[in-house]
Design a protein around this nucleic acid. Structure first.
Length: 718
RNA sequence: GCGCGAUUAGCUCAGUUGGUAGAGCAGCGCAUUUACACUGCGAAGGUCGGGAGUUCAAGUCUCUCAUCGCGCACCA
């Protein structure tokens, strides 16, 4: 018989998360167990997650809460199962995103980036980012994230830049990179080009104008671009225009006087569309540019980088496009060239995803990655199941995009980012990668080579993140942990990030960067609306944690949230899990209170042996199975019901008379209660790490297989 | 235009290979020195969007219609 113990005093009042969470995190961090090198026992199999590095430009939102909760749950589960569990944290400088945030800040202070030296701007943003970074890292700690801070990486660290530069050079060597004048998505506000993914399409109803253009009628929604239109295009088989020959010149009256136009016969002309005749503006339309290239036509810029008309527009020079549009139409009308106006032309307009201003297609010399060869390998890897998606839906979406991929513009006219290590000819525009800074003369003409002032698209470097965090090409971590186990991130960045990581990971190493992709949906408010600052329905994780505790938030984010589907965050639901944390607390109080005289290793009665076999073991098996299938929502729900409806409502209630029974019955029940408590804490730990660890620290030594629950062994079915 | 989803209790959603519906919250009725009121017990609530088909059997598989949402790419 052990001596009579008092139960720890802490259990005499309700569980108060704020009293324990900080200390518990410190206990974990100080233990060194976040680093797999320090984990107890023999561990051979690795389990690795590369954390999606949060943008170091603000505080954490509910979506972050979900990311860190799901990933931490995976990590804790696999760590308890005896794997070499490594979670690699980081922070993202988030190029354009952060610059936009910082520009807003400048604006509030009455400043502008266009009045600053690039270096000055860069340094200021660096300072801003660094202070956000440490603030954010603390928030990640508060969520309980068991990541290895000793391996933390920032996306502007030297190691990252080295990898990115090497990839850039390798792409050039393999002829997968080119610098070319192409149509780019230009944001006149932010003064940078954007990838297709960085534009949003806005459905609009606009006016559509028909003009007399010599013998033809042409239609356009954008009269302000028409100054340079001196080619008129129609389908070669269009019977209506068979009298006109390709290359034939015609004289006609146009906006600012008579011009000579040239007939171009091209398959791009759609006979079904309007009159079947169009004029083209190669500088400000991707399609027109393609036509112009095919026929080697001239092209000229009409609208400047700020969205204003150039001298070619004569009297309209300097006008912003919206103003110019009306005036040009008026002038053409006065000249009798306006045929008709369709007031209800429905189309969608590409806009900047940050400021929603209309994108102005422009021709600009940029670096492009020839993506098709990379995409083919990525598709093959998915086909071979080298990388799998948790939901089939994601796999279909991924394939569809990959099969229709276009070349990737990786140049950005943004200060905050990794500068492009290349030289550009001031005379002919030829570009060449120059890692050593040795190129001075152009190999095509003999013009001078100047450094490219642009920076990389953030996603170009982010796409290499699994390589950088594991220390590619020659570190132990790379050998031990690449390919990583799971990439868990939001489904909104499947193309931006996941696709690029797979392509670039395969490209550099020949192996996929991760074996499995788990994509979660968006976190919405309780009514299912997207959270946004302007709607005022944003729920910050920290507020919820303060009210209900971190464990309750985590459960609220996990339960009822199937992989890939959006979820609504409802405070009432989180409150239910706050109550649950207290339930576990009181279960512990009951068990400890009734086992102060317990002798470890007491014999089970036949009834209790059978009872565990019938109830405890199947629960363990079921929960483990859900975890294996990445159904954390089902696992969390099951463990909730197991603890509340079975352990508390049945086991404890039935134990009351048995504890008052014979010595054998009492001892057997005490052992059963210990088994149940220890098992429940372990099963709950991946989901609710704080309350379970807090309790664990108060348990008598003989109940534990490890001092710290985080590294205790996952329950097995005996 | 191309593609992908969704439609189940008042609300938010689960429902694994087909076997006559589940959870949380809300709501209703009871209980009150109980390990725990951050509680317990009880009851109520659904022809699983409409229609057709396959099957002994369909929320689940097939087709079709309707409504909603999302993604991608676009013109003149």
């Amino acid at each position: 018989m052990s001596e009579q113990n008092q139960i720890p005093e802490v259990f005499l009042k309700p569980y108060d998360p704020s009293e324990h969470e900080k200390n518990i995190y410190k206990l974990w961090e100080d233990s060194g167990y976040f680093n797999p090198d320090n984990l107890p026992g023999e561990r051979t199999e690795a389990f690795t997650i590369v954390m999606p590095p949060p943008n170091a430009n603000g505080s954490l939102h509910a979506g972050h809460g979900l990311v860190f909760t799901i990933e931490d749950t995976m990590m804790r589960f696999e760590r308890m199962r005896g794997k070499k569990a490594l979670w690699l944290p980081g922070a993202d400088h988030a190029g354009f995103e952060t610059q936009v945030v910082y520009e807003k800040k400048l604006q509030k202070e009455g400043r502008s980036r266009f009045q600053m030296e690039p270096k000055e701007l860069y340094d200021e943003i660096m300072e801003f980012t660094m202070s956000n970074k440490s603030f954010m890292e603390n928030q990640i700690r508060e969520l309980g994230a068991s990541c290895d801070w000793s391996r933390s990486l920032f996306t502007l660290d030297e190691r990252v830049i080295k990898t990115v530069y090497d990839t850039f050079k390798k792409l050039e060597d393999d002829e997968l990179l080119y610098r070319g004048a192409r149509t780019v998505n230009w944001c006149p506000k932010h003064q940078t080009s954007l990838s297709n993914l960085e534009t949003v399409h806005d459905d609009r109803t606009s006016k559509f104008y028909y003009f007399q253009y010599g013998p033809f009628v042409i239609g356009t929604a954008r009269p302000e671009t028409k100054f340079g239109d001196k080619y008129v295009v129609m389908h070669p088989d269009d019977e209506r225009y068979k009298e006109y020959e390709h290359g034939q010149e015609i004289e006609l009256e146009w906006i600012n006087g008579p011009i000579t136009a040239t007939i171009i016969k091209d398959e791009a002309g759609d006979p079904e569309m309007g009159s079947g005749v169009m004029t083209i503006t190669p500088w400000h339309s991707g399609i027109d540019f393609e036509i112009a290239k095919r026929h080697n036509l001239d092209y000229e810029q009409i609208i400047n980088w700020r969205g204003k008309l150039l001298p070619i527009a004569d009297e309209f020079e300097g006008m912003p496009i919206t103003e110019a549009r009306e005036k040009i139409v008026q002038k053409l009308d006065e000249k009798g060239l306006l045929v008709k106006v369709d007031e209800k032309y429905e189309h969608s307009v590409p806009c900047c995803y940050k400021c929603n201003r209309e994108i102005e297609p422009q021709i600009r010399e940029q670096w492009f990655v020839n993506t098709k060869p990379l995409a083919e390998k990525a598709l093959a890897a998915v086909e071979n199941k080298d990388v799998t998606f948790v939901t089939e839906r994601d796999e279909r979406v991924f394939k569809h995009w990959m099969e229709n991929i276009e070349d990737w513009n990786i140049s950005r006219q943004v200060v905050w980012g990794i500068s492009i290590p290349a030289k550009v000819c001031t005379k002919c525009g030829h570009g060449q990668v120059d890692l050593e800074d040795t190129i001075t003369a152009c190999e095509k003409c003999d013009g001078a080579m100047e450094p490219d002032p642009d920076t990389f698209d953030t996603w170009f470097s982010s796409g290499q993140w699994p390589l950088c965090t594991t220390g590619f090409p020659d570190s132990d971590d790379f050998t031990n942990y690449y390919p990583t186990s799971v990439m868990e991130t939001g489904k909104d960045i499947i193309f931006f990030w996941v696709a690029r990581m797979i392509m670039l990971g395969l490209y550099r190493t020949g192996e996929v960067p991760f074996k499995k992709v788990y994509l979660h949906g968006m976190v919405r408010d309780k009514k299912g609306l997207k959270m946004s600052k302007s709607k005022g329905n944003v729920t910050a994780p920290s507020e919820v944690q303060e009210r209900f505790g971190t464990d309750a938030l985590r459960m609220g984010l996990l339960v009822n949230n199937a992989p890939g589907s959006d979820m609504n965050l409802d405070p009432d639901k989180i409150n239910a899990y706050k109550k649950f944390a207290n339930k576990i607390w009181n279960i512990t109080r009951f068990v400890l209170d009734n086992t102060t005289d317990y002798t470890p290793g007491a014999e089970h009665t036949a009834e209790d042996t059978a009872f565990e076999k019938e109830h405890l073991f199947p629960a363990i098996a079921e929960i483990t199975e859900h975890m294996d299938k990445d159904r954390f929502d089902l696992a969390a729900e099951k463990v909730y019901h197991f603890v509340w409806d079975h352990f508390a409502s049945i086991v404890i209630e039935e134990s009351k008379p048995l504890l008052a029974g014979s010595a054998e019955e009492r001892a057997s029940r005490q052992r059963l209660l210990h088994d149940y408590l220890v098992t429940s804490l372990k099963l709950l730990h991946p989901f609710m790490p704080f309350v379970t660890e807090t309790i664990w620290q108060e348990l008598p030594e003989e109940m534990k297989d490890q001092d710290i629950l985080m590294v205790a062994s996952w329950p097995k079915v005996e």
